Computed example of a mutant assay.
Amino acid sequence: MSARIDRTLAALADPYRRRAVELLGQRPRSAGELAGELGLAAPAMSRHLRALKAGGLVEDSHPVFDARVRIYSLKDGATAELKQWLAETEALWTHQLAAFKAHVEGGGE
């Protein structure tokens, strides 16, 4: 497994961060909006957003009207490598379980 997948999984390990990703999947939001919807204090939300950025899942931008505000959004293609790994792992398990089933149903011959 690559270091990128490790970082992505580490970022998604927290339920608040997974919920933030779900919310950002609907539309970009400010940290304050996310904190309000998740019921978190601003410093806690900031830590979660830093972890999501470090995991390569989100990016931020400044709206033209106010450079002090950061708007967070999901990063395009951020989960592509994770999705590929999951698909390969699923295929491996499907094959292994089918072989095990055939072995058990065949009487172990």
Rank of each mutant, 00 (worst) to 15 (best):
E59M: 07
E59A: 09
E59G: 10
D60L: 00
D60S: 10
D60R: 06
D60C: 05
S61Y: 12
S61N: 06
S61P: 02
S61T: 11
H62E: 07
H62W: 11
H62D: 03
H62R: 09
P63D: 02
P63A: 09
V64Q: 10
F65Q: 15
F65L: 14
D66K: 07
D66Y: 01
D66Q: 00
D66R: 00
D66V: 01
D66S: 01
D66C: 02
D66H: 01
A67R: 15
R68N: 08
R68M: 09
R68T: 13
V69E: 00
V69K: 09
V69H: 03
R70Y: 04
R70H: 06
R70M: 00
R70I: 03
R70F: 08
R70T: 01
I71C: 00
I71A: 01
I71N: 00
Y72L: 00
Y72G: 04
Y72S: 02
S73W: 00
S73I: 02
S73L: 03
S73D: 13
S73N: 04
L74I: 05
L74A: 07
K75Q: 13
D76L: 04
D76N: 04
D76C: 03
D76H: 09
G77V: 05
G77I: 01
A78V: 00
A78R: 00
A78H: 05
T79F: 12
T79V: 12
T79C: 14
A80E: 04
A80W: 03
A80H: 10
E81L: 09
E81H: 10
E81S: 12
L82H: 03
L82I: 01
L82W: 04
L82G: 10
K83T: 13
K83R: 15
K83D: 15
Q84I: 04
Q84W: 07
W85E: 12
W85S: 15
L86H: 09
L86A: 14
L86W: 03
L86V: 11
L86F: 10
L86G: 09
A87S: 06
A87Q: 08
A87P: 09
A87D: 14
A87G: 13
E88V: 08
E88N: 11
E88C: 04
E88W: 04
E88A: 13
T89P: 07
E90V: 08
E90C: 09
A91K: 10
A91C: 05
A91W: 11
L92H: 12
L92F: 10
L92I: 07
W93M: 04
W93N: 06
W93V: 10
W93T: 08
T94P: 00
T94Y: 03
T94W: 06
T94I: 07
T94M: 09
T94V: 08
H95L: 14
H95G: 08
H95Y: 15
H95V: 12
Q96G: 03
Q96A: 11
L97P: 06
L97Q: 08
A98N: 14
A98V: 04
A98E: 12
A98T: 13
